[in-house]
Nucleic acid binder design. Structure first.
Lengths: 368, 368
DNA sequence: TTGTAAGCGTTATCAA
DNA sequence: TTGATAACGCTTACAA
């Protein structure tokens, strides 16, 4: 590698053609005579020539790449340097049956996967950035400068910077509130899903004393779900709590800590059901409740939101609202491509349907 | 967006400075007088200027981006177009307790996550490509032309193309056999881990009639594990099967199908333990065995490889060899950065340690 | 501290 | 079917 990286000029010279022909050989081979093509091919192989993406992007004014932006989910700032040292010998140990938490945000992973899928389907590359630390601004601008369009999870990019970037390239927002009519927007039906779920708890299981366990204060998704929760209570003529019972951080570990705190302070007395803002929080609660001898769903019902696999694998299986996480990413990218093709049309806002999955954590299946 | 995208020239003109000063404002702000800086800042904001990554990459001869290459794991070629239609209403349904399979390859997802983590830590962007279909060559070259270095899972890039690319930029291989001393290489201790696991089955659980359930024929990881399996049998003076009992495809669904076939043909008679090439295959076997009334571990012991979360959540929990999937990606990127900084040093091959996790699927914990 | 000017490696337009 | 040549938008000596 390295040394002197060959360019079109080198190839052209050795092949006895012009640089234009070399370029054509790559972009439009049919426009080059076959014998010429063979000669170029041979030289390309001999020299180990690979066209420079930067030069191509500059000249063609498009990169064939779309950018994807997410909020920092693993606490990237605090990751230890990875050990490059020598490998230790194989370890063998008995693995006690503890609860584990990979720490990663399953929801975001799925959404990322969706954006990648859809981009790859269209032959586009994906560039992912996670703005973090004091250089977040740089990271985002750097990304914006290299791609043909940007897909971002709400709140991952500060509003002013987003507005700035959007003057250069099309932007599609995922999740969060529709904010404005400035950008294309894709989200899941947080409100509707939570309303349907809460109604089920109230009407089919006859539960009372429902409480909401939220995510981070500033999460618009969590807020939307709380609104849906409140609305369902209101519609049923029940008391509507003004605030969520508690705020978690969307992680399982956070859910566990939160549950222990609630138990300690005896804040679960009289609570019939805990409606959680996401699955991981609910699973954390389940861990801690089970540990404390509180039975789910006999003593208290429990529900989540997202529909991650772990919710299905839990015991009891977690009733939840499945949102199409993969599709969220896919639709966002599809919308971006549409926008790239039709720059002038009005911004579109899409709400993806969700599905309430009734399982055992909210009580026995009512024979309805 | 669009219209006329502003350039350094526009900014320079409006701010009454030269383009060099605008460039300095971004790359080395301290070298610009504060009053000048303020003027440039204002114009940048007014104009919505974002530096072109292509132009920067071309001029600076580095992109600040690393490329990551994986084999197609979701069958990207056959993905249906995503529905851009209007949202349907919320659905509520009882979710029967079936086994599910997200279909995604958990192992690869984790490795990807690792590469992203390590790159982000160093302020680098990551570009991911999945070569597929007839345009795989293009996709890879396109990626190679845009990045400062490349990390790839073994077999994701054809050998000849890899050699071609490697003349232009540094390449680090992940997993698979060390092949040659041409590239830097990072892998997990597949052999060692499987040897230790198999020894445990033989010596601590006194199991006999051990069989290996492999992954795809051409998977080097699967081959290494089969070798370790064979070696452990040899060392114990037991019969060494010449071939794996069967080949799966590394998916849970594939494992289920495979188990049903084995049961049907009564090929499990006399088999004391099934050592599987990965967790998902083992979990598929577990699904089908349980369904058929075969008890694990009482009737037959079962083990996996990888250490994915689902293995922990299974019932009985799956004994497995945990390989540091995240670290595989992280170390590969770290190695790439090292190579970028020291181009001339000899290629390095690292084998990451693994950990045998003894759980219930191989039998009761021997009070050793 | 700032400006001048020479690249950087392609693509794309026009002619030939 | 091929070749000249002018962009493309930035970085980076070198000078001032």
């Amino acid at each position: 590698m390295a040394g002197k990286v060959p360019t079109v000029y080198d190839v052209a010279e050795r092949a006895g053609v012009s640089i234009a022909t070399v370029s054509r050989y790559f972009r439009n081979p049919e426009a080059v005579r076959e014998t010429t093509r063979d000669r170029v091919r041979a030289v390309v192989r001999d020299l180990g020539y690979v066209p420079s993406g930067s030069a191509r992007g500059l000249a063609a004014r498009r990169t064939g790449t779309i950018g994807v932006c997410f909020p920092s989910f693993d606490d990237v700032d605090h990751i230890d340097p990875v050990d490059l040292g020598e490998g230790l010998p194989v370890t063998v140990r008995f693995d006690p049956s503890e609860h584990i938490d990979t720490g990663s945000n399953l929801y975001i992973s799925e959404v990322i996967r969706g954006t990648e899928l859809e981009a790859w389907r269209h032959g586009l590359a994906v560039m992912i950035a996670v703005p973090r630390g004091r250089r977040r601004h740089e990271v985002i601008d750097n990304l914006a400068g290299r791609v043909d369009g940007l897909v971002t999870l709400a709140r991952a990019v500060p509003d002013d910077q987003l507005a700035h970037i959007a003057r250069r390239l099309p932007v599609v927002l995922m999740a969060g509130p529709r904010e404005s009519d400035t950008y294309d927007h894709v989200s899941a039906d947080n409100r509707g899903g939570t309303i349907a779920l809460t109604r089920h708890l109230i009407h089919d299981h006859h539960l009372r004393g429902l409480q909401f366990v939220a995510g981070p204060m500033n999460s618009p998704d969590s807020q939307d779900r709380f609104e849906g929760f409140s609305e369902a209570l209101l519609l049923a003529g029940l008391d509507v709590p003004e605030h969520p019972l508690a705020h978690g951080d969307f992680t399982r570990t956070g859910g566990r800590a939160l549950a222990r705190r609630l138990l300690e302070r005896e804040q679960l007395t009289g609570v019939g059901a805990l409606v959680c803002a996401n699955d991981q929080t609910a699973l954390g609660l389940l861990d801690a409740l089970t540990e404390a001898g509180v039975r789910v769903p006999e003593d208290i019902a429990l529900t989540g939101f997202d529909g991650i696999e772990a919710a299905h694998l839990a015991s009891p299986r977690l009733t939840t609202v499945r949102q199409p996480m993969i599709d969220l990413g896919r639709v966002a990218v599809a919308q971006l491509l549409h926008r790239l093709a039709h720059p002038a049309t009005a911004p579109v806002s899409r709400v993806l349907p969700v599905e309430v999955l009734l399982r055992e954590s909210c009580g026995p299946h009512p024979s309805t």
